[in-house]
Amino acid sequence: MRKIKSILTSQWLQHLTFWVLSFYAIGSYFSISNELKIIDFIYAAFFHIPLVALTYINLRYHVPKFLLKERYVAYLLLSFFNISFAYFLHQVVFEVLIPILPTDFYMVSFTDMSVLMTIFGIYWLLTTLLKLSKSWYQLQQLEKEKLSLELNSLKMQINPHFLFNSLNSMYSLARKKSDKAPDAILRLSNLMRYMIYEVSEDVPLSKEVDSINDYLDLHRLRVNEDATIDFQKEGDMDEQMIAPLLFFPLIENSFKHGLKGEKGENYVKISLGNYANHLAFHIVNNKGEADSTEEGDYGGIGLENVKKRLNLIYGKKSKMEIIETAERFEVSIKITWS
């Protein structure tokens, strides 16, 4: 199936199909009888000499060098000269080349200038539109590939310190023969499986919620007992699909930069609501004195990652708001479904 798709999307096949249809159309248009004869295809072949020149000058040079670079005036001027050149080449073919060829067929260009210029203009416009549509399609594919690469990059951004601390916590639980150890190992296993294997495409919101719960429970193993880690959900989480790992960089930032205040003042609070026409996500954490390795813009790469993914996936249907004070940092995200 992949091989067939590759053949159907190959450039040479697309061009061959275009010119076969063009030969048939030109041959039919200029045919002097009700059925196509050899002379009609020979005439179409000579007629296509200026058409091929016009088309590939436009496709290979004018469109990529001028139109796609938004040099519109230059493109229009060059297109005018291109069409004029095609007309001149047509005259050379039929008035100079064909008369000196040893052939039993007698062919002349019985098309007046207005009809010829109209035909050349149609081919110029048609090939330009086809090139633009192909460029647009390629741009969309590049955006999808870029999104896929960003998602794969995000999957590899699991904080190694988080893994290290989680494994240390599990080791401590195992040494104490705590009943929590098996559950902690299972949660880490579930989280790793989800991040590595189950996020190649959109996932049910309920799966994202389950993974956030696993992530939070693992953090609860290593933070002080007086710290507040709260996750509130509202609405139906089963039917709605969402881009995976969308909120994880924000949650990771909250644990990385937050929970550094005085005893009893540490918190990470998350709320997620799925409503009739939109989804609302909100996260807030307290702030404390930053470590020397954490100086700089708060959130950094994580925030930029979320912004880019929101823009690529949801565009104008998404909105992200950041509020930062000396005591807290919070982020709100709204995604409109319809």
Score class of each variant (00 low, 15 high):
Q14W: 12
L130V: 02
N274H: 10
H62Y: 11
S22L: 12
L16N: 10
A45Y: 04
K334P: 05
E198M: 10
S133F: 11
V203H: 06
I196F: 14
T103L: 02
Y123W: 05
Y267I: 05
G315T: 09
D230P: 07
V63G: 04
E143F: 06
R71I: 11
F94I: 03
K177L: 13
T118Y: 06
A174T: 14
L312Q: 01
R175T: 13
Q141M: 10
I301C: 06
F162Y: 09
S189Y: 00
L68A: 15
D214H: 09
D183I: 15
P102F: 05
N311T: 14
K177R: 15
V20A: 03
L139M: 14
K155S: 10
H15W: 10
L246P: 00
G258K: 04
L173F: 09
Q240R: 08
Y197K: 10
N165H: 01
V331P: 00
K308T: 08
E289M: 10
S22Y: 06
T103F: 02
L97M: 09
Y171Q: 11
L54E: 01
N277A: 11
T17M: 10
G302A: 02
Y194A: 03
D217W: 01
F30Q: 00
Y194G: 05
S206C: 10
I185Y: 12
E150T: 13
L246A: 01
M237V: 08
D40S: 05
H90N: 06
F18D: 03
L191M: 03
T293P: 08
M113R: 11
P50H: 05
L218M: 02
S338E: 13
I212V: 08
A74S: 07
A74Y: 09
K176P: 14
L142E: 13
S292R: 09
R220I: 08
V306A: 01
K317G: 07
E70I: 14
F247V: 01
S211F: 05
D214P: 03
A227E: 02
K180E: 12
V209E: 06
N274G: 09
F248Q: 06
A326V: 14
L101Q: 09
S206G: 08
E198A: 10
A174H: 06
I229Y: 05
E95D: 13
L154N: 05
Y314I: 02
E294G: 07
I313L: 09
H62C: 14
F162L: 04
L250E: 04
I185C: 10
R222T: 11
A326H: 08
N152D: 13
A25P: 10
A243W: 05
T293F: 11
G27M: 02
A174L: 15
E239D: 12
G273M: 12
A280W: 12
D236V: 11
N305P: 07
S271K: 03
M320H: 00
F248V: 00
K307T: 09
D112C: 06
L188Q: 06
Y56T: 05
I100H: 05
D112H: 03
N58K: 01
